[in-house]
């Protein structure tokens, strides 16, 4: 299997569609016969990232590179950026408004959970310009 690259637009105006890209990646990894534990880690980490993009940044783009050894996911948005990444990585710290909590999210577990389920994580962010998450999950 050579590298398979998947690209998605994550719409920012429709909460009900958040997770469609993660769902598609999960299905493709299953079809490829990928290791189930790696599939689970990819699905959860990417889904958290997608939800974050919809909640905080008005959507964005996702690129996923799959090869036999690893899955690399890049999520890029053009939202407000993260002023304090250290705080955002703390469990329970969230800037999500009440309406997002009413939808079952915004408990301040998104980025910590992404870190938990990825083998490598880098966050590039600039206030006023946007955020990119670079995640890697080993097979």
């Amino acid at each position: 299997m050579s590298t398979l690259t998947l690209r998605y637009e994550v719409p920012g105006d429709d909460f009900t569609r958040a997770g469609e890209a993660s769902s598609d990646v999960k299905r493709k990894l299953k079809q490829l016969g990928y290791n189930p534990e790696a599939i689970r880690k990819v699905a959860i980490a990417m889904y958290e990232g997608e939800i974050n993009m919809v909640i905080h940044a008005g959507g964005g783009e996702a690129t996923v590179d799959i090869d036999p050894k690893q899955v690399k996911i890049v999520l890029t948005d053009h939202g407000p950026g993260i002023p304090d990444v250290g705080k955002a990585m703390q469990e329970g710290w969230s800037t999500a408004p009440d309406n997002v909590r009413n939808l079952g999210f915004g408990a301040g577990m998104g980025l910590p959970n992404i870190k938990k389920y990825t083998d490598e994580l880098r966050i590039d962010t600039k206030v006023g310009e946007g955020t990119s998450l670079f995640m890697t999950v080993y097979a």
Binding site: T16, S22, S23, G104
Partner: peptide
């Protein structure tokens, strides 16, 4: 909670 993300969450898990 009654929204589609409940099903998405179940799917991911």
């Amino acid at each position: 909670l009654c929204n589609p993300q409940v099903i998405r969450t179940a799917e991911m898990m």
